[in-house]
Design a protein around this nucleic acid. Sequence first.
DNA 1: TATTGTTATACTCTATAACTATA
DNA 2: TATAGTTATAGAGTATAACAATA
Lengths: 141, 141
Amino acid sequence: MSAEDERPDLAAMLHPLVRELIAVELPILADHGVSMWGYSVLTALDGTPVRTQAALAEAIGADKTRIIATLDELQDAGLITRIPDPDDRRVRLLSITPKGTRIRRAVRSDIRTREDQLLSALPAADRRAFIRILRTLHERG
Amino acid sequence: MSAEDERPDLAAMLHPLVRELIAVELPILADHGVSMWGYSVLTALDGTPVRTQAALAEAIGADKTRIIATLDELQDAGLITRIPDPDDRRVRLLSITPKGTRIRRAVRSDIRTREDQLLSALPAADRRAFIRILRTLHERG
DNA sequence: TATTGTTATACTCTATAACTATA
DNA sequence: TATAGTTATAGAGTATAACAATA
């Protein structure tokens, strides 16, 4: 049996990494006053408005019932707009506001700084390869 | 702003990957009659007995109260032994049984097959690099 | 009747704290 | 008194189903 066969399962390696990343992100998000789901929504809306809440929910891998409280908070904080479509008043047209864009990008910048620290355990070439491969896997999904 | 700066956050790429892996693993685990935590315990015990339940819990990133039901199930199914240490009857000596070892390795083999399918979207060199880098990050933790 | 968004309910997971038995 | 294991309780997060408004 080769050493490769003895490696931990992918999930056993990836899951702790995700937990570590979440632990790193939570205080950053708290500093900027947004939740994890809120940041996820802002990220999805930055650059591309979305026509229905259900479509937004699917885009970020959530249930449509799960993001309603999040949208309420973001709207109350002035980070998104949520206006009924005049053509079909059942649907809500969702957009990020300038303030929402500012916050989203500030959060992303802080997260990127911490990610770089975390990846600094790797040689530069591996760092680049890891991100490139991860993007391939992500875009494939 | 370069394309690299526009990449999704690490967590945004890794989290869906973990969810996909879990979705792939759950039916495999069900086929073999073990839970995710059960498999995690069997993996930790395969090759190295553990002296206390608290140590085992910490090794797999769980709370000591969270694995008790799992240990009950594994013991009832004959996959582990849990015997009081004669030298200190508060502690339970935990070991995997031959049956537990068989099941653990069968599960791992099935999971590996599905992981390979998932990674088949990558060129062979990237596949090897991804796993190698992941192991570095994992062992660093 | 079908669809969008919303609310309500129940269920699962997890964390915290109390309890027991040994030391 | 301190520690290993256990049990009980409460809380957060999630999923399902029912509901209201609009088409």
